[in-house]
């Protein structure tokens, strides 16, 4: 593909600066903007960075009634459950990774496909209606979504009750450990696929209409437009979201899974978050919970930074780039 057909949405304004300004000059020029940004920065510092100090309890036997300072140091004891090969932990880790992988493969592309489909709708009114309907499930809490699925598809749910009364075939999805991952993946798709289209739709809407026209002039149909214009245009956004998604690879949603562990059992459904809850918080082992949280955070950071680096190697922007990467 020729380099000149590529559209870079995030390309900043690169008009040549007449004479380079010193740091102080730039500061004076932007002082009001900086002042406007200050409350936000303070908020982030106060509620995002200061609480990070609380991670120190990962190295303590923290008890609320003793406080952070008084709780005794225990070195790396809290990290033991991660490294001592406890089969329950290994099971939780395996399940987490499998679910994450399945969700990246099956859930991630769906909003893209949906956005492309919606974009091809001609009538604005239908497009808006479809969008609203697809966004709606995102605003339901997991408790409601899980209850809805159970009431519809449960073994005594709407469908199966009807099927039993009419000697029709029954569908026993809920409560079958083998179908658990399929179930929770479909729930995620049902709930969030519509919402996920927003960013892609925004990216698509910024594609220069003339590019489509050029393809048409060259005799290309819709498929060619898609392949040569739309997809390349939203590629940076796709890669950006994929990298961010990697940061969450050890987090697959606590509530959704916790609510549905009962019928399928721990072997099929225990993931890191529920493991930490069951082993840590329930037993008052706050330090252990913090330790696992810390390791999850570190792994996530490493994955995001690593993926970003890989993206740069392939000439992509990734989530951010320093001068030397460009």
């Amino acid at each position: 593909m020729a380099q000149d057909t590529e559209v870079d949405l995030a390309e900043p304004d690169r008009r040549p600066v007449l004479r380079p300004m010193s740091r102080w000059q730039r500061f004076r020029r932007d002082r009001f903007l900086l002042l406007l940004g200050l409350p936000g920065v303070l908020l982030v510092l106060l509620f995002q960075y200061v609480p990070l100090l609380g991670n120190v309890i990962a190295f303590k036997d923290y008890q609320p009634y003793l406080g952070i300072v008084e709780s005794p140091w225990v070195g790396l004891d809290n990290f033991a459950i991660i490294f001592n090969g406890d089969p329950a932990f290994v099971n939780a880790l395996t399940n987490t990774l499998i679910i994450s992988f399945v969700q990246i493969v099956f859930v991630f592309p769906i909003p893209i496909a949906l956005a492309l489909l919606m974009n091809s709708l001609l009538s604005e009114r239908i497009k808006r209606t479809v969008q609203s309907i697809l966004y709606l499930p995102h605003f339901m809490s997991w408790v409601i979504v899980v209850a809805l699925f159970q009431h519809m598809l449960g073994n005594a749910g709407l469908y199966n009750t009807w099927a039993r009364a009419n000697d029709f075939f029954e569908v026993n999805v809920i409560g079958d450990p083998d179908l658990f991952i399929a179930l929770i993946t479909s729930q995620v798709i049902w709930k969030d696929a519509g919402w996920g289209t927003i960013i892609f739709l925004a990216a698509i809407s910024r594609v220069d209409i003339e590019l489509f026209e050029s393809v048409a002039v060259d005799g290309g149909g819709r498929i060619r437009q898609l392949w040569h214009v739309t997809l390349p245009a939203i590629r940076p956004v796709i890669i950006l979201l994929l990298i961010l998604k990697l940061g969450d690879v050890l987090t697959v949603g606590f509530e959704q899974i916790f609510l549905q562990q009962g019928p399928v059992g721990l072997q099929a459904s225990e993931v890191l978050d529920t493991y930490v809850y069951n082993r840590g918080i329930v037993g008052g082992n706050w330090g252990t919970s913090a330790a696992v949280g810390l390791v999850k955070g570190l792994v996530g950071t490493v994955l995001v930074l690593g993926a970003n680096k890989v993206a740069h190697l392939f000439g992509e922007r990734g989530i951010y780039s320093s001068k030397k990467d460009l």
Partner: peptide
Amino acid sequence: MQRDMGRRRFLQLGSGIGL
């Protein structure tokens, strides 16, 4: 029973709100 309790309460609240 504590784990079960937590989950059941979650769900019952859920069905409670919805249904």
